[in-house]
C-alpha cells in the first residue's frame, strides 16, 4: 500500500513519535503492538541520546530534526504523538495541522481537546489536536467524573506522587503546566470550580508506585456511595490500563478520600512507573479509536 488513503481503508494509520524521552520510547513499544498503527519514525534531538539508540535498535527509523523531520517526510503522517515539551506543542500544531495530521499531545500544553477515553470517546475523531492532559489527570478524571455525576461536590484536590526515576527532565521543567492542566481538566469534567492539584516526587527505594490521592468536600458523601461509583469507573479504566487499582475509598464528615495506584503493564517502563503507562495507554487507545472511526467511515 502506498498512500495514506488506502492505509486508512485497511484500518492502519501511519504514525510518528516526536520526542524520544521516557514517554516517547514506551509509546514506541506500545504502537509496535497495535494492529491499527504503523510506526514510521521516532524523532529526537540528538542521535547520541539513549532514547534514539533504543529506537534504532528496535528497528524503527529515527530522525533528529525535530518537527521539521515530519514536515519534510515524503508523505504526511496520519497521527503524530507529541512527547516533547509543553512550550513546543503550539509550533508542532502549526506545522502539522495543515498536513491533515492528527496530533496527540502527551505534554501538559493544554492546547487541544482534552481526552479521557472512558469519559469522552466521542470527541476523539471530531478533533485534530488531542490533549492527553497529564498522567495524574488520566488517573483522576475518570474517577472524579463518575463521582460528580451522583454527588454535589464543593472542592476537589488531587495529589499525585510519582517515583523520581519515572520523572524525566521535560516533566521537571513543566511542573507548573502539569498543575494548571490537571486542574483545568478536573474542573472541566466535574463542573466543580474549586480545584487544586499538587505533585510530589518520591525518592523511595524500591521506587514508590505511581499514586493519585483525591480528596473531596461534599455534604452527602458516604463510603458506600463513593465505593460503588469508584469501583465501576476503575473497572472501565482497567480495560486499557491493567495496573489501575483503588487503594483507599472512604468518607467521613463530608470529606471523601480516594487513592488509586497504577502499575505499569511492562513494555519499556518498570512496574512502579504507572504514570508513563496510563498516559501512553490512553494516548494509544485514542489513536486506535481514531483508526477504527476512519475505517468505519471508509467502509461505510
Amino acid at each position: 500500500m502506498t498512500d495514506n488513503g488506502s492505509r486508512a481503508a485497511a484500518g492502519r494509520l501511519s504514525v510518528a513519535v516526536l520526542g524520544a524521552g521516557l514517554i516517547g520510547i514506551d509509546l514506541m513499544t506500545k504502537i509496535a503492538r497495535s494492529d491499527h498503527l504503523d510506526l514510521g519514525l521516532v524523532v529526537g534531538r540528538d542521535q547520541a541520546t539513549s532514547g534514539l539508540r533504543q529506537a534504532h535498535r528496535f528497528g524503527v527509523p529515527v530522525a533528529t530534526g525535530g518537527v521539521q523531520s515530519l514536515v519534510d517526510s515524503e508523505r504526511p503522517f496520519d497521527v503524530v504523538f507529541d512527547a516533547t515539551s509543553a512550550s513546543s506543542h503550539a509550533e508542532h500544531v502549526e506545522k502539522l495541522a495543515p498536513l491533515g495530521t492528527m496530533l496527540i499531545d502527551l505534554t501538559p500544553s493544554r492546547s487541544g481537546q482534552m481526552i479521557f477515553p472512558t469519559v469522552n470517546r466521542a470527541d476523539i475523531s471530531a478533533h485534530r489536536d488531542l490533549s492527553m492532559v497529564s498522567c495524574g489527570g488520566q488517573a483522576a478524571v475518570p474517577i472524579l467524573h463518575a463521582i460528580s455525576q451522583i454527588h454535589e461536590i464543593d472542592y476537589i484536590e488531587v495529589v499525585t506522587t510519582a517515583a523520581t526515576l519515572s520523572i524525566g527532565r521535560g516533566t521537571r521543567m513543566n511542573l507548573d503546566e502539569y498543575v494548571d492542566t490537571t486542574q483545568e481538566a478536573v474542573r472541566c469534567f466535574t463542573g466543580v470550580a474549586d480545584v487544586k492539584a499538587i505533585l510530589n516526587i518520591s525518592p523511595a527505594r524500591p521506587p514508590a508506585t505511581f499514586r493519585v490521592a483525591m480528596s473531596l468536600l461534599g455534604k452527602d458523601l458516604t463510603t458506600d456511595s463513593l465505593r460503588s461509583v469508584v469501583t465501576a469507573a476503575a473497572a472501565e479504566v482497567r480495560s486499557f490500563a491493567r495496573g489501575f487499582e483503588v487503594k483507599a475509598c472512604t468518607a467521613n464528615d463530608g470529606k471523601g478520600f480516594v487513592a488509586v495506584e497504577v502499575t505499569s503493564s511492562g513494555d519499556r517502563v518498570p512496574s512502579y512507573a504507572g504514570n508513563l503507562d496510563i498516559i501512553n495507554s490512553a494516548a494509544l487507545l485514542a489513536a486506535e479509536t481514531y483508526a477504527a472511526d476512519r475505517l468505519s467511515m471508509a467502509g461505510g
Binding site: 518520591s202 490521592a213 483503588v246 487503594k247 483507599a248
Partner: peptide, 19 residues
C-alpha cells in the same frame, strides 16, 4: 506525602477498604 497516612493506618488496622 500526607495522603499515605490513611493507607498506612488502614493497613495497620488490617482491614483494607480498597476494591
Amino acid at each position: 506525602q500526607e495522603d499515605l497516612i490513611v493507607d498506612v493506618a488502614l493497613a495497620l488496622r488490617g482491614a483494607g477498604t480498597g476494591d
